[in-house]
Amino acid sequence: MKYLIITILTFFAATFAFAQSLDAKMEVRAQEIGAQLRCVVCQNQSIEESDASLAEDMRRLVRARLEAGDSNADVIDFMQERYGDYVLLKPPVQGNTFVLWFTPFALVLLGLLWFAFRRQKAIANAPLSEEERAKLDAILKGDER
């Protein structure tokens, strides 16, 4: 009898847990969103990674919004409105983050442009002459003795 009750209870617990969990697709979306949201009381952890109870609440909130039919962007907007820019691990592109967002690309672009258009003096100037090379070799050999 005892075992029967345990079995039934386990069964109910299992179905309850099953009903509680979203279908797989929605769970994937929830995790995708969660990875972009910071647990606001933690030090540099997303709400998906954190064990803090606030993160747990925030995870629930994300799933509740998804179940209510929000799109991924809606959920993120909702969380941003509620917790401020601080909650976004991917900072929004706006006035105070232009420098942050565009510097890396500007650096690479400027670097590549400089590289492509730099004066290539090598053609005009010869590298080490034979004499210079011999001198260098002599110095290096001398050291190795």
Partner: peptide, 18 residues
């Protein structure tokens, strides 16, 4: 005094392409 976070998604979009 504005608080923003810079996390993995930022680096994925900037550092990773480089």
């Amino acid at each position: 005094r504005e608080k923003i976070s810079v996390g993995e998604p930022y680096f994925n979009l900037t550092f990773t392409p480089i």
